[in-house]
Design a protein around this nucleic acid. Sequence first.
DNA 1: TATACATTATATGCAATTACATAATGAGTG
DNA 2: CACTCATTATGTAATTGCATATAATGTATA
Lengths: 97, 97
Amino acid sequence: MEPRAGEVASLLKTLAHPTRLMLVCTLVEGEYSVGRLEEALDIHQPNLSQQLTILRDAKIVETRREGKQIFYRLTAKRAAKVVSALYSIFCSDGEPS
Amino acid sequence: MEPRAGEVASLLKTLAHPTRLMLVCTLVEGEYSVGRLEEALDIHQPNLSQQLTILRDAKIVETRREGKQIFYRLTAKRAAKVVSALYSIFCSDGEPS
DNA sequence: TATACATTATATGCAATTACATAATGAGTG
DNA sequence: CACTCATTATGTAATTGCATATAATGTATA
């Protein structure tokens, strides 16, 4: 792990924010427009856009425009893998702590 | 994930730091004294102690005193699971990004 | 006991980063 | 142009990272 600690910590840092984590979780299911993400997460739009920018800069998501709308999807497979691991750790098996 | 997003993000935030990540990785192998951690990670002592304090506050590690030395070990199984998932994602299977 | 030393923790200060709100700007379409 | 959908700009309070300095705790020994 040592040589990758910086890289891994950097990805974790990007995910270590409730909104961004939920965004990535949501996008694991597929492509969403910004508007649909806004509904799904109940967050003010500029803030949402700022968090999406952070995910874009981290190469975790990428976009596609269709008319006025912009669709987001995951690009970083590793992020998806991390999220699904978190799912299985926190949301599946029972034992606490 | 939604209801746990805060809790999960909080754990990720604690791990999202190269030194702390390496500390947890190291402690997955077993108990270490502060001195041994210092050697293993090559970090200045007060800084190490500060990072250990953060891990202690987050209930990720706990301690035991033996004479002058203090031994640290993991307490949060979830942290260990997260780290081992990170291992398998970043250090085992090949495909990048 | 007093002293010296080893081991670890805490205090303090400050530069850098983060979170997020409000306001303004872009880009596409009718 | 007017409207919609989304991004960027800007300011600021709060948090983080980390260095230097100081303290606390345990042991050994004169």
